[in-house]
Design a protein around this nucleic acid. Structure first.
Length: 365
DNA sequence: ATTGAGCGG
């Protein structure tokens, strides 16, 4: 079992005795990390195994999990069209004790050099979506691996999932995540461990926040100019003035229009006072007017907006490339008389063509 | 300094 040294941070000015020297932390990978103690899916026989290397097979999983108990079934989930592994699998045992034992003993076992992450199968996505009980830890000693992190945090409650962020070679990036089954456990872990020394490094432990949430809570995001879209075509400047005027004094309210004066169905409202702008966004975003659900938010500068669009575009490109990795062919200098159907027919003799598209112009978003 | 992934037959 990995030895983790947790201690209270010494106040620098007290002249108190120096903290004990760093203790070596032999991280053995023999026996597994903490035991699931909570009243989670008591007796559940079905495990979810994630973070699988894409080449891990059912046979490999059967070899591993079959050592712990009697298996009912194993399935690596795959993309329906490409048959590529989705990186997760289900393992079903005959009884709950065996499943519990497998989770306890086999969590973080490397398969094809990637530690697998085992959880109980939980098909209801509500907890996952809510993010409740999820915490973030940074400034972790690089020697702390998944298992060591699990051991340290399992003192505070039942851990659903836990992981240290690693680079391609498996090196720790010095931060990680623990998903507890309750917010209470998460809160307790944060209270007790934030700012403590773990292996002589002072860690930060706090609630997990997505980038967006972090930005809006960190950056003092004060603004006067409000963007509103999804307006009905008949909504005019005066209507914006009336609706937004409820929240404070307005310096301008404009519906954007094309050359013919037709509404582009979005506009800007500028407030004298940033607090009023924030109140208007809070109150009006998602409200319905003329059957249209308004989107109301801080107006972005052109540069901010371009930055966001660029990010989204790159993300979707990455996903597309990733999904069809090694399966997508690019053919250029095609005559424009070649139709999608002709392309498909030509290439079909080499295998199943799942999609085929000729492009006249570069794709834009 | 570094804020994830994510549930079938």
């Amino acid at each position: 079992m990995a030895q983790i040294q947790v201690q209270r941070q010494q106040a620098a000015a007290t002249g108190a005795a120096a903290p004990p020297p760093p203790q070596s932390m032999p991280t053995q990978n023999g026996m597994a990390g903490g035991v699931a103690t909570g009243p989670i899916p008591l007796g559940s026989t079905s495990l979810y195994v994630g973070d699988l290397d894409l080449n891990v097979s059912e046979a490999q999983l059967a070899d591993l999990f079959g050592q712990v108990g009697q298996l009912v079934s194993i399935r690596v989930c795959r993309d329906q069209t490409t048959r590529r592994s989705l990186g997760y699998a289900y393992i079903n045992f005959t009884n709950g004790q065996e499943a519990a034992r497998a989770l306890e003993l086999l969590n973080f076992t490397p398969l094809n050099n990637s530690p697998i992450r085992i959880m109980y199968s939980h098909r209801d996505p509500s907890l996952r979506k809510s993010g409740a009980g999820n915490i973030y830890i940074k400034n972790l000693d690089k020697a702390i691996d998944h298992k060591a992190l699990h051991d340290t945090f399992s003192a505070f409650g039942n851990i659903l999932s836990c992981k240290v962020a690693t680079d391609a070679s498996g090196q720790s990036k010095g931060y990680g995540f623990v998903q507890f089954d309750t917010e209470e456990a998460a809160k307790n872990a944060i209270d007790k461990l934030n700012g403590m020394l773990i292996n002589d490094k002072q860690v930060y432990v706090g609630p997990f926040l997505r980038k967006q949430e972090r930005d809006s809570s960190t950056s003092n995001t004060r603004f006067n100019n409000v963007f509103v879209k999804n307006l009905s075509e008949s909504t005019a400047d005066e209507d914006l003035k009336n609706v937004f005027g409820e929240y404070g004094s307005i310096t301008s309210a404009v519906v954007m229009r094309d050359g013919d004066g037709k509404s582009r169905c979005f506009g800007f409202v500028n407030f004298e006072n940033a607090d009023d702008a924030a109140k208007a966004v809070e109150a009006l975003n998602g409200e319905k007017f003329d059957d249209k659900e308004w989107f109301v938010a801080k107006a972005q500068k052109k540069s901010e907006r371009e930055q966001e669009l660029k990010g989204r575009f790159e993300q979707s490109m990455k996903e597309a490339v990733d999904k069809y990795q090694g399966l997508n062919l690019y053919i250029k200098n095609l005559d424009d008389t070649i139709s999608d159907e002709m392309l498909k027919e030509m290439f079909s003799e080499f295998g199943t063509v799942t999609s085929c598209k000729g492009l006249l112009v570069p794709v834009s978003i």
